[in-house]
Design a protein around this nucleic acid. Structure first.
Lengths: 233, 233
DNA sequence: AAATTAAATGTTAATTTGACATTAATTATA
DNA sequence: TATAATTAATGTCAAATTAACATTTAATTT
């Protein structure tokens, strides 16, 4: 029985905003398309959802294809589905952002695209509505990171406090008082001090920390203005 | 040129979680389907996205069809797209939640469905993955309401402080200290006291308030644990 | 007139915040 | 080899905010 016969079909795509952090600032990974339409133009990495895949599966596959990475933190952020958003046909795109440890990224060579990292403030013009997608992704990242410690997904297993501070500054485009930031972060119990120091980036060297996974899992980082406690789950 | 020819099409649907607040607790509006498949079963209100519509347009149309309301606060919360989520064909559903003033809702008579309000804790078994959608909606509502004063969309233009308190209690399933809650809310400048009192619900009567639209627009209600100020926009 | 009910406002100690200053560990340089 | 330079790490404190708790107020019911 196919009761929905008269309904018009659409194509279902996935696009990924891939965030990385290199110690300088937040970056996103873009590709230069090697195929039509919009060949040679900058674009988000994307693809079509296959019959056996959920959109999540599809996003994971696409991310792996570009970065070689699996088990990456991904989050569905929105669906873009205006009737004419694609020039060819009606394509509805489910958009995800991924937070990857940029050090684990290996440049994948492909004829279909050429990949490059762009600072968040220097994103070039992209095809279709991809610039809009990037804006939504930035907003959602800020929004989510205000309540959950997800930005740690961008860091390697060992990281320093100056690094995290820089990362937050980059995400929110603000200057932090490192003294207050450090105090709050330390008191949260979210990170554990290691014996080793990072001596690459400063004379004195900064101690490495790792995530306290116990705390990490359920951590809500914000405090509700009208509501005491942590009523969000 | 139709470069995507070989890609498999899907059907695109929209489902709405419609929240309402009647002074007792949070409720959602469900329909009993009058058509196949899954006839006579409880379901979210939904429909298919038409060729000229964006998913947002579609959600607004569907909401209007059921409630008669336009200009309603709606938010896209997720896409549900597992390959076999619908028993008939591959249908991908974009899910929205709507916050309506329950007093403005007028019962629409239709042969396609029968509508009924259900307390959030007594949602019956729904078709397909609709229960899962409701759970996601509850979570997203909590999440969003922790940062933005969106729950006021559920109240009439004039409301009392005991009403808002009850509403927050209902959304987060907690007990609030009304004294502290009231103080914080008042000091936010978000609401403006009116001369008139609501004498329906208590002997003493509670003063009505209205939203301060100036403050409302940009209000972030939470405070970031690691970040000073309101760096989210 | 007194009891009842729920709204509205008040009190306070403990905690948290934000603004600002100092000390510590290392390397570069005079 | 002493000193300057750099940046990490820790420290201080007044003001604001929180959470816990108590009282007063305005009406209705008995």
């Amino acid at each position: 029985m196919t009761s929905y016969k008269t309904e018009p079909p659409v194509l279902l795509a996935v696009d990924c905003i891939i965030f990385g952090f290199d110690g300088e600032g937040l970056k996103i990974l873009l590709i230069k398309r090697g195929f039509e339409p919009e060949r040679h133009k900058w674009s988000l990495m994307g693809g079509f959802v296959q019959p056996t895949e959920s959109p999540e599966d599809s996003a994971a596959r696409i991310l792996k294809k570009l970065t070689g990475l699996t088990d990456v933190y991904m989050e569905q952020i929105a669906v873009f589905g205006k009737p004419d958003r694609d020039t060819e046909q009606r394509v509805v795109s489910v958009v995800y952002f991924a937070l990857i440890d940029i050090n684990k990224y290996e440049h994948v060579i492909s004829h279909d695209y050429r990949a490059e990292w762009f600072p968040l403030k220097e994103v070039p013009q992209l095809i279709f509505d991809h610039n809009e997608m990037v804006e939504v992704a930035k907003k959602k990242l800020k929004y989510k990171a205000a309540l959950y410690p997800i930005v740690f997904e961008l860091l390697p297993e060992k990281f320093t406090i100056p690094q995290i501070a820089l990362l937050y500054e980059s995400v929110y485009d603000i200057d932090l008082d490192r003294r207050n930031f450090s105090r709050k972060l330390l008191s949260s119990g979210l990170i554990i001090k290691l014996k080793e120091k990072d001596t690459e980036n400063s004379k004195k060297g900064a101690f490495y920390f790792k995530i306290n996974t116990e705390v990490y899992k359920e951590k809500i980082m914000s405090f509700l203005r009208f509501l005491p406690g942590w009523p969000i789950d």
